[in-house]
Design a binder for these strands. Structure first.
Length: 124
DNA sequence: GCCATGACGTTCC
DNA sequence: GGGAACGCCATGG
């Protein structure tokens, strides 16, 4: 297993209870900024032995990313709700309130709206 | 070794 | 605000 994967899992495990983090955020903290896709892949290859809090990882929209496993979305939502994470009417999570902020000493309004803009590219 | 796909993200129209 | 396009990378065929 790659060290990157381990680091990703470690970052995910650092998410405090009752909070969620986005894939991009995790990728950033894991040392692979902009590669959220790899994070998703790492989580897909996740096993129960790892015991990673994968349910605290959501996409940038605050929604639960569905995967191959049927019913996993419901499970994830149930686990999050059990931890105190609130869900909006449309099934989304208000990231402004429950988004994990690794370095939020006293100003919770550090990043509002988007998760980050590490790559201001975007040619089209 | 090339091609297609995927638990995603960001920017532009 | 919604949709489309491009990116980056690992994995499997």
């Amino acid at each position: 297993m790659n060290v990157t994967y381990e680091r990703i899992y470690a970052v995910v495990n650092r998410i405090p209870k009752g909070r969620v983090a986005t894939y991009g955020q995790i990728a950033l903290l894991a040392g692979i900024p902009g590669q959220a896709r790899r994070v998703g892949y790492a989580l897909s290859a996740l096993t129960e032995e790892r015991r990673v809090a994968w349910h605290r990882v959501v996409n940038a929209r605050g929604e639960i990313s569905l995967r191959a496993e049927p019913g996993a979305g419901e499970l994830q939502r149930a686990m999050l709700e059990a931890e105190g994470v609130v869900f909006g009417r449309d099934g989304r999570i208000p990231l402004a309130r429950v988004l994990w902020q690794p370095s939020a000493p006293a100003s919770p309004r550090v990043r509002r709206g988007r998760a980050s803009r590490a790559r201001p590219r975007g040619r089209r």
